[in-house]
Amino acid sequence: MLHLDHVTLEQGSFRLTANWAIEKGTRLALLGGSGAGKSSLLMALAGFLPLQSGRILWAGQDISGLEPAARPVSILFQDQNLFPHLTLVQNLGLALNPRLRLTDVDRSRIEAVLDRLGLSGLGPRKPADLSGGQQGRAALGRVLLQSREVLLLDEPFAALGPALKTDLLALVAELASASGTTVVMVTHDPADARRFADQVVLVHDGLTEPPAATAALFADPPEALRAYLGS
């Protein structure tokens, strides 16, 4: 279970509170407009933003004080998910060994992941030599190899255009359910939330609503969601 226990974030005059939990294996969307604070919440989960107060618990353990790499989470950013000066093998290798001393076992695991993502034979290339979609899948390969229990997505693939984004999100959903990974995705697009998430947390006015089942939520939108959807 991922539990946000009376969490408050503060950045300047901005303030956000969250006090809710989701079950392991859930695919959750944090939905809200720009500036609502959904990305800040994700950065706090990832360990880039310290909490003002409260705790974040995973499986009953307080993880709020851990460094990003020590948390049971992996993250895909909006962009800058791959180091442009390293090859795909090196980029993915960082997930297995940050010193890049890769064993034969590591290398074959990387090859296997590249194969699974349709990137066979592209290991020696650098990101700039790949298409946008291939770069997105390679970034996904990195988090697959990190094989953490929670995957955080910060509006990923948004720069790739709607069709590619939808494809890649479907791939994430498929891989996540195969491994039982809990996913928290930030999005401003209700369509993403409906396609991808089991549950939705609305972020607005410095508040986060408790998680609600996606289908039920959109069937009967509460006031805040109606205001956001503009219907």
Partner: peptide, 19 residues
């Protein structure tokens, strides 16, 4: 550009300097 990604993959110390 890259501090967060480096932290996310646990790249630090000499490895961070080198890679």
């Amino acid at each position: 550009d890259y501090d967060r990604l480096a932290q996310a993959v646990g790249l630090k110390g000499w490895a961070r300097l080198r890679w």
